[in-house]
Amino acid sequence: MREFEYAVAGDARAAIAAARGGARYLAGGTNLVDLMKLGVETPALVVDVSRLPFDSIEPTADGGLLIGAMASNSDVAAHPVVRQRYPVLARALLSGASGQLRNAATVGGNLLQRTRCGYFQDVTKPCNKRAPGSGCPARDGDHRNHAILGASKQCIATNPSDLAVALAALDAVVVIEDDAGPRRIPLSEFYRRPGERPDLETNLPPGALITGVELPALGVAARSTYRKVRDRASYAFAVISVAAALEVREGIVDDVRIALGGVAPLPWRARRAEAALARVPATEESFRVAAVLELDAAEPLRDNAFKVPLARNLITRVLLDLATASGATA
């Protein structure tokens, strides 16, 4: 770990000014501090934004919910409105990390988590994301946990966030602030595919501060869930996760949202599967066909091909469970 300066931001303006000068924001520190210890992050200045007044969870004028960026994962997961109207979000948060980490980790920080790719985290090895142009050893190396969708020649690392997968399914909007003032970026436009520049992970302007996440009023979200398959029963990143919401009327799919974690460099909204499920009978067969269709685009590597049948099975199962829970299978 290198020496660094630490400053507490008095207000958002000051924080943004410091970040424009190269400082890194510190909120819960559950990822940044680890990366600093590993030498992956070497900021000269760390600006503590955890005391900025962005930790409330409040209803929005149009019936949605605004979650402050500094709200802890624990607080969001326990919030009655989240539990009632967006259960997928509470479950995604509770499936992540440990109780202690969830108490410290924040919503804003969670969205900016870096990948857990072992090559990215080891400064003695090449990595296009950490050191652009140095190469991607994962492609021919250890990639069991890597992406099958949306990756590039340059990078196959997955996004580790559970929260972001739920937010992708919910059509959330990320609220940010920078020199130009507050702005809103839909989650679907927040993350970038790695392409030729895997070092650029989001469309966040330089120095911008995430101040909140807005959930739209979304009826189907009340019938949602999150299922995470991982290599141990808790305290592990997803091998595959599925966030889904399903509304069935008279045996027919009325509304459906599906997002996948652990399969791509970004939370993967399964739009092909959703399209295939529009107005079809809510049956296991429909769900399976949709899942297969989504995974048609998969480009598995030597050691992660199992993710294709696993994702297919999991999507099918989660949708079936949601349909069954509402007593609405065809």
């Binding site: 072992g118 080891d122 090895k125 050893p137 250890d142 290599d231 141990r232 029963a233 808790s234 990143f237």
Partner: peptide, 30 residues
Amino acid sequence: ALHEESTIDSRFGDYTNHDLAGYHIAANAD
């Protein structure tokens, strides 16, 4: 039985999971 495994990258001659986030040990829930 369920978790422990050091994975090695033969090109570097090095483990790719040399910490307790990557090298899984049973958690309480297991």
